[in-house]
Design a binder for these strands. Structure first.
Lengths: 350, 350
DNA sequence: CTTGCTTTTGACACCGGTGTCTTTTAGGAC
DNA sequence: GTCCTAAAAGACACCGGTGTCAAAAGCAAG
């Protein structure tokens, strides 16, 4: 009973059915499907008519076999953060929902020494038309090279340009961080702490550079005790907060490299009876849901990850469809991050 | 240059290469790949040897075409919450990472009147071996029926059993909520507010029933002003909090149907200068990252979504592999949620 | 050494499309 | 009307596997 229900005979119509109905060869139908230009309008119309009538949908597996390419986009990530991945996914799906592409998700383990082999095998098997690399694995040049070798288009997502425009979508973390920190300085803050992201992450480095640039521009320095390492996790924020807020002369403001760690710093402040923002101003990064869920709502930098997802997908699709589609080159691959002011920033006391 | 790099001749070995090397027919190789039992040990070994030597990996597209089935698992969801979806994904991936299945993600729009057609078309095209339905769309019986019709195995995920054990993985929200609320009562709370999830969500109904059961067991009633509708979003929590905490006689504790809304209620409390938990105890649901990011850390019910993902995937795989694999039936399809005590609960004042 | 099974293996068509190359058709020039 | 060329359509192999059914091989019994 199962799998045999439905229309006439219970099977999907195939290209042969369409060909028979339109009175042409299957190759001609194939040409219509693939929008070949060597076809007369008359034939095209009658074939389209038949396709319509039968409700024909080309079988993707067969096409994949013949094309030696699957109509899929692969998303490779090492889950830096659930929200980031899902927002990105959402952006990708926004972009491909009207194409007949589907999204294949593949988490990988950047720590594994089999990383490269895993990815290569995965791409060889699935043969997607394109792959998207999320940070931090987007920073791995070997992965990009594998894609190149395998003829899989790819786009790398990062906090700063990682590759040429065809292969990269990035944000401008550095500038925006500098801008945000500039505002703290303008408010009168002089002792400003910094909590860094994990070593080896380009985003962490970019944010640090933005931070330092802002200090430098104002002639301020960053004492060692106001600099904390971190790993983008809540607990690192807690540790950094505990260290800095126990100082004899604690900072009046902190820039924290992501929202999750910022939440950790804020918890410590609350725990010590400090008022945010009156006693301590905090700025985070990402504009994750956490930023608005905590109290007071966190001033942060909105990272346009969903838009980057759409953009990355459009780049792949345009590239795949060839010159016909609007080339991606005329779009700027740098998507602006923006500083969002909420309630966690105020002038320093006194 | 691209796509032609690599080993000898630059192409993947095919089943024919293996057959030639082992001196058998391709059908025999196919039998080895598919673990057919009608094969002599001697032949099997020599074929496996050849497969090994050549590094042969069967082409999934070709198999999909011949099998009329893709080696994919589809995840259908209507993004109830990013964290939920991603955790579930993670669970699925834990379970399938050693099989040669891949995960296809498909968000759908439950509001759309084309929902059923969309899903049907998607499944007809992709022909995954199985599909997983996340709440709230898992509650839609028509979707399950479509899977059934198309011969796609499916698993529905929910807050209570939605289907028979082969087709469902669920948690026991009701009991655990009752348990959690029971603890509030045991601490001495008598005026306990409730913030509900969206209408039409089974999880919302289950949690409400658990809540009411706990009150009933203690002989307490739920006055109208302590009952707030909600939609699982932060802002709904804020609204509910504003309404309840402006009452002349505000509740001393609230059970909120998810963490995100609980964060909203907590913000309002902070804004009104109320201390949590001294003035107001709050319990949430989900154990999302938000629960630990806010201050004070939220007591909540941990919803085992990742485990449910693994379990759902294992059910599909076992079903697919047939009787050979451990049948799913001997596992209990109800995964226990657990109450987690953190800092947002205390006895009522005075 | 046959005979009669059962177990293994192979030949060949087929899944549903696309690539290549050939043939047919359509048009324009003469 | 004939010839030539470009555009359109078709024939057929092929992508890399699996299903079906027939043939070959293995083996116990006669």
């Amino acid at each position: 009973m199962a799998a045999r229900a439905g229309g006439q005979g219970g099977k999907q119509p195939t290209i042969n059915d369409v060909a028979a109905m339109a009175g042409v060869s299957k190759k001609t139908v194939s040409r219509v499907i693939n929008r070949s230009e060597f076809i007369s309008d008359k034939t095209r119309k009658s074939v389209q008519q038949a396709i319509e009538t039968l409700g024909f949908v080309p079988n993707p597996q067969a096409r994949a076999l013949a094309f030696r390419r699957n109509f899929l986009i692969a998303l490779l990530h090492d889950n830096p953060n659930a929200q980031t991945v899902l927002n990105f996914q959402q952006g990708v799906l926004d972009a491909i929902k009207d194409s007949d592409l589907a999204l294949l998700v593949r988490p990988v383990d950047r720590g594994s020494d089999k990383l490269l082999d895993d990815v290569r095998l995965f791409l060889e098997k699935q043969r997607p038309i394109g792959a998207m690399l999320l940070p931090p694995i987007s920073e791995n040049d070997d992965l990009a090279k594998i894609c190149e070798d395998l003829g899989v288009r790819y786009v790398r997502v990062g906090s700063a340009p990682l590759d040429d425009a065809r292969h990269c979508v990035s944000s401008n973390d550095r500038e925006v961080v500098a801008e945000a920190v500039g505002k703290l300085i303008a408010l009168g803050h002089r002792r400003i702490g910094f909590v860094r992201g994990p070593a080896g992450f380009r985003s962490a480095a970019e944010r640090e550079e933005g931070f330092r640039a802002a200090l430098a521009a104002a002639g301020l320095s960053l004492p060692d005790e106001l600099y904390a390492p971190g790993n983008y996790r809540y607990t690192a924020g807690v540790e950094a907060g505990e260290a800095m807020l126990s100082l004899e002369e604690p900072p009046t403001a902190v820039f924290v490299s992501n929202d999750e760690m910022a939440a950790g710093v804020m918890s410590v402040a609350h725990g010590k009876g400090l008022s945010v923002p009156a006693d301590l101003s905090i700025i985070g990064f990402d504009d994750s849901p956490t930023a608005t869920h905590i109290w007071p709502a966190l001033s942060t930098v909105r990272w346009p990850i969903r838009e980057m997802g759409s953009r990355a997908a459009r780049t792949l699709v345009a590239d795949f469809l060839g010159s016909g589609a609007k080339a991606a080159d005329d779009e700027n691959p740098v998507m602006p991050s923006t500083f969002i002011e909420r309630q966690s920033v105020a002038p320093p006391r006194g």
